[in-house]
């Protein structure tokens, strides 16, 4: 005790457990995985951990067309999914906020999709879009187009749309619940003052409600941009990145390389290259969040 008292100030001492835990569970694994990305580490050959290959994994990535297609597709997927979820979540939150009765029940029902495991969502949507016995094609055939069979999960556009739909179905409630919390915390005086001043509903929404909600929007965006990798299980079940890599996202590619192929060194190199994507989205949303708070007169 005397050792700590004499050398470390109380704030450092109090923060020490947090630093130690973060170092152990975050920094060490990160540094370790960074190191392995410069090795030929194979999961089933522990000795390969010391097989230093320098930049070879990264050099191969630079010329790997499949990786860059997956990178681009993930970028588009993230952008479209997050924006769609935002728009739909905002719409749902605004509608629920207007409810005067049964709001609690609706809020609970709205959260049901979040309770499903992404694997189950994958199986569910795989069945819905199955071209032979699936619900969508059966519905189309029941409506009179008896010979129509759309290969939803084969066509590059519809396959990605089907995955997008599964992801949006599963995750829109997260946006809705966060934005609903924002709406419920919003002071009503400015809205009423604007109405008294003659603003129409659109003007109230555009100039009062939305600016108040923006910090919540960016927090939701930042959380979801990191959390969207949960969609891995859904994609894995629905298409596993196929056919012919048409729905390959970074997560399916990295998981296959790391676990099935056991090439953990290469998988980690892929992860570090793709971490740029996460860093970009996080920095972007946090900047936007700070700007939104400045607009609202909040403290950064």
């Amino acid at each position: 005790m005397r050792f700590f008292r004499s050398r470390l100030s109380p704030p450092i001492l109090l923060l020490m457990p947090a630093f130690v835990i973060i170092t152990l569970v975050v920094a060490v694994p990160l540094l370790f995985s960074l190191y392995t990305s410069f090795t030929g580490y194979r999961l089933v050959q522990p000795a390969s951990l010391w097989q230093w290959v320098g930049l070879r994994n990264y050099q191969r990535l630079l010329t790997d067309v499949d990786f860059w297609w997956a990178f681009g597709r993930t970028l588009v997927f993230l952008t479209v999914a997050l924006n769609l979820e935002l728009v739909l979540g905002l719409g749902i939150a605004l509608l629920i906020d207007k409810l005067t009765a049964g709001q609690r029940i609706i809020r609970t029902i709205m959260m049901f999709p979040m309770m499903f495991s992404p694997i189950l969502v994958g199986f569910q949507f795989k069945y819905i879009f199955n071209d032979n016995v699936g619900l969508v094609n059966n519905a189309i055939q029941s409506l009179g187009w008896e010979n129509v069979t759309i290969p939803w999960l084969v066509n590059p556009v519809t396959a990605n749309l089907a995955i997008l739909m599964a992801e949006v179905w599963m995750s829109t409630p997260i946006f809705a619940i966060l934005l609903l919390a924002g709406l419920m915390a919003m002071p009503r005086d400015p809205v009423e003052a604007a109405k008294v001043d003659g603003c129409n509903p659109w003007q109230v929404f555009r100039h009062i409600t939305l600016p108040y909600l923006m910090p919540f929007v960016y927090i939701a965006m930042a959380i979801r941009s990191l959390d969207v990798a949960r969609a891995y299980d859904t994609v894995k079940i629905m298409t596993n990145g196929g056919p012919a890599g048409r729905t390959e996202l970074l997560w399916t590619l990295i998981a296959r390389t790391g676990y099935q192929d056991a090439r953990m060194g290469m998988a980690n190199a892929m992860s570090y290259a793709s971490i740029l994507l996460s860093v970009y989205f996080t920095v972007y949303f946090f900047r936007k969040l700070a700007a939104a708070r400045r607009t609202m007169g909040g403290v950064e």
């Binding site: 795989k126 199955n130 071209d131 032979n132 084969v154 629905m238 596993n240 196929g242």
Partner: peptide
């Protein structure tokens, strides 16, 4: 073959055969 067969695994095929398709 169903166009979606490129995404099928054993269970999908089994279900399709059992459904008589």
């Amino acid at each position: 073959v169903p166009a979606g067969t490129v995404n099928y695994t054993w269970d999908d095929i089994g279900q399709a055969f059992a459904a008589g398709t």
